[in-house]
Design a protein around this nucleic acid. Sequence first.
DNA 1: CTGAATTCCGAACAATGTGTTCGCTTATGA
DNA 2: TCATAAGCGAACACATTGTTCGGAATTCAG
Lengths: 185, 185
Amino acid sequence: MSGDRRVRRTRRMVQEALVALILEKGYEAVTVTDIIARADVGRSTFYSHFTDKQDVLLSNLHDLAFLRPAPAGGEPGRLFAFSLPMLEHVREQERLVRALLGRRGGGPVHAHGERLLAGLVRDELLAAGARASAALDLLVVCVVGAFMGLLRAWVDGETAASPAELDAAFRAAVEPGVRAVLGRL
Amino acid sequence: MSGDRRVRRTRRMVQEALVALILEKGYEAVTVTDIIARADVGRSTFYSHFTDKQDVLLSNLHDLAFLRPAPAGGEPGRLFAFSLPMLEHVREQERLVRALLGRRGGGPVHAHGERLLAGLVRDELLAAGARASAALDLLVVCVVGAFMGLLRAWVDGETAASPAELDAAFRAAVEPGVRAVLGRL
DNA sequence: CTGAATTCCGAACAATGTGTTCGCTTATGA
DNA sequence: TCATAAGCGAACACATTGTTCGGAATTCAG
């Protein structure tokens, strides 16, 4: 590992404290004072590692590597290869993802995820033969919106469905429309 | 109108000040002190009308009446009757909606809109012959996610499309999938 | 027009949170 | 072992919140 053990320990304690507090009170309601109390870390120490609350939140993003650029290829005709693997990966990191992406998570991370996913979807549709256009961008927005909505509903406990069921629901909702649009380009 | 003219005036000034400030700095960054300065209203006056910042935000919701329960009926086979009228109504209230529903708007109103829209969509699908089920709820989440995504992208200036184009994109993306699912219930 | 009621003002206040500084202590790795 | 890097925590200035209160201004009813 890199750096001093104390550094790793401190950063980890702070990150975990924030996640725990988000799940208890929601991101907005968490104060830096809360965090350092929970993490049992000095105030000055906190500010020597992070600039503020949001910095801690975003520092967790590196652990959300499941937004990898898709294993390239896969079966040829299959759309949205990212969906099922991503949902399964999320289940494993349930606690972290629920804190970061749920309604209690406050938004910034959700926006981040939306952008990343939009890039993925756009590339995939281009690879499937779509032409870059304003209409394509709107289609991407719809697809991403549907997926993120599903993801949020899941981590917020609004559904007890399994990753496979969520994947199926996602595909059922958007795949026919997407294929129809693709055919027209 | 109801009540004292001073009351109406004060409330209006405060609401407009918040909308203006959101468009400038984003909801999170706006303080009560900012609001009363911009509205030119005494501090105690503010707190005699509103409990806090969010209260002002939500007080604007009554003006967003475009979430009406749909003009009932319409053509029989037509799905998502709410879409185009809603988008057109939004264009007329551009400034207010952009402040409330955009990324800068901070979330609470977005969540509100999602819930209302989910009820609308769910009722419409039930009326179209769907059975209440977990699968239906997931479908509703996807549809609402797609629409809200489109709406958000629009008010955040990510697209210059017209209401008619947005409506078309929405339908193209989700209607085939929805009809396919409906056929299976 | 007048007067009582309502509303507004604004200053002051306690309470909480933020981000920084500094001298001292402790843990780490070479 | 020992120089270095990290942590501690108290104290600080500052910003924001939400409340209180007496006096000034506006409004509406009669």
